[in-house]
């Protein structure tokens, strides 16, 4: 079905091409002279080189794209890092809560006073919720600050590179130190 439809399309295109060539040459818009041969040879050469060199060219460009992608993947994605951090924090919180629960249950006071147990549990629950909320807030604010930092540093770097004013050595060192600090913040996970 698909083959026949493309076949029909090709036939229609061929028909249209022959018709247009006839019309153009009858109106003397398409003049047959040696320039025609140049054009034919040019088109022939383009088709020939596309067939013979097209794959090589494509492989070269694809290889370049691949190389850039691999280079990028060596840097940690800040979003993923933040997500991992938050998961870890949540896990730690849960564990500490569980320990708290067992401690409260094992208290001799709790047994004799069941109302107290409920209160403590409610308190712990609220604590947990508050902590989770602050955690997510901290993560998002940290992420925004990190992005802002990156953008500022990038603008500083690019602006300096293109302004032709020579960056002095001290400035460069200072810049590298600052970016290292930012990188360490990302790696070290100061998100709590």
């Amino acid at each position: 079905m698909r083959l026949s439809s493309t076949n029909m399309d090709a036939r229609k295109m061929l028909f249209a091409a022959i018709l247009s060539i006839c019309a153009l040459s009858s109106k003397k818009i398409l003049i047959y002279n040696e320039e025609m041969i140049v054009a034919l040879c040019f088109i022939g050469f383009i088709i020939f080189s596309r067939k013979s060199l097209g794959t090589t060219f494509k492989v070269t460009l694809d290889g370049r794209i691949q190389a850039i992608q691999e280079e990028l993947q060596q840097f940690p994605n800040p979003n993923e890092v933040v997500l991992l951090e938050s998961n870890e924090q949540q896990r730690l919180l849960r564990i500490s809560l569980r320990i708290c629960g067992t401690v409260v249950e094992s208290l001799p006071m709790a047994r004799c006073a069941p109302k107290c147990e409920k209160t403590v549990q409610a308190l712990l629950c609220r604590n947990l919720n508050v902590k989770l909320a602050t955690l997510t807030n901290a993560i998002s604010s940290r992420r925004i600050r990190f992005q802002d930092d990156l953008v500022t540093k990038f603008y500083t770097l690019v602006g300096k590179q293109f302004a032709y004013s020579c960056i002095s050595k001290a400035e460069r060192v200072e810049f590298i130190r600052e970016s290292l600090v930012v990188l360490r913040m990302v790696r070290g996970g100061g998100f709590s």
Binding site: K58, L61, R64, I65, I68, Q69, L72
Partner: peptide
């Protein structure tokens, strides 16, 4: 983009 397509690659080259 940071990861170029074919045309961008050509201009970058």
């Amino acid at each position: 983009n940071l990861v170029p397509n074919a045309w961008q690659s050509l201009v970058e080259l």
